[in-house]
Design a protein around this nucleic acid. Sequence first.
DNA 1: CCTTGACTTCGAGTGCGCTCGAAGTCGTAC
DNA 2: GTACGACTTCGAGCGCACTCGAAGTCAAGG
Lengths: 151, 151
Amino acid sequence: MNAVTAIETDPGDYSIADAAAITGVSVHTLRYYERAGLMRDRVRRAASSHRRYRDVDIYWVQFITRLRSTGMSIRQIHKYAEMARSGEGNEAERLELLEQHRERVEAQLRDIEGHLAAINFKIDLYRSRIPEDSPQQHSDHSAAPPERMNP
Amino acid sequence: MNAVTAIETDPGDYSIADAAAITGVSVHTLRYYERAGLMRDRVRRAASSHRRYRDVDIYWVQFITRLRSTGMSIRQIHKYAEMARSGEGNEAERLELLEQHRERVEAQLRDIEGHLAAINFKIDLYRSRIPEDSPQQHSDHSAAPPERMNP
DNA sequence: CCTTGACTTCGAGTGCGCTCGAAGTCGTAC
DNA sequence: GTACGACTTCGAGCGCACTCGAAGTCAAGG
């Protein structure tokens, strides 16, 4: 069970280029994430010191990509990864972190829906001014959205 | 109809501090937006050279805030504002810009929904590992999301 | 043996969107 | 008159998340 050959030949081991292709994250960013302490597990190395990503690493990258895409900061992901790295005993804490994030994402979703509605409203406003011949005043200003805008 | 007094006393005129309070955008940022050419209309000034925001300015700020919140860049908003400033004749172009943004926002919304589902999936995974007493192995790894993750 | 190319590390650079601070000007209150 | 506070301009600074580049290593192919 030679570790090196095992690592080199094991299917389910990917080069950094492969990992980048699979995850859609650039090789630069993959290295950066690792440096920043975002990886859950230490990424294995071939004898050549080249990184060998395993499936779990890929999944992890895909998951933290989702966290990033929903606005979680690198700092926060680092914290989460650190907890995950330190093994059992902090599951409740990790869960809490995720649940807090979930709430932020849900709020995000609601906000964006509101913004979308306002944008659609404005689009309709433009539409009503263009198609038929009525190129008089442009009272573009008040893009009054479907819902109240101010607190 | 003294312009100065008219501007000073007109209700519907707000100081930059008022505008900041109303829009939730900081005074620094309001000035920055103006410098960056994001304002549709030239913001009026009192004799003291203090800015006097009118309702339309407020509405505009609120709208571009929505554009910002949905990921439109300052550069793009500048372009849009420039078109709006240059008066009639480019409504179709403005409409197109907004519609393109709308599509991006809709895509954003779908993406976030997917991310949220994956996060919820992971949360459920944690939940199943915590409440009852079963603190054995932690096979946290594969946060297999409800939908396929890779293209 | 030598080239090629895919990787390595590490520090520096970039772009974005603010955010701040210094120095100055007003207008009102005491 | 002078102190105060709210504003003004302008340039510089900051934090974040990458992104890049230089210089080096290594394995395989010709």
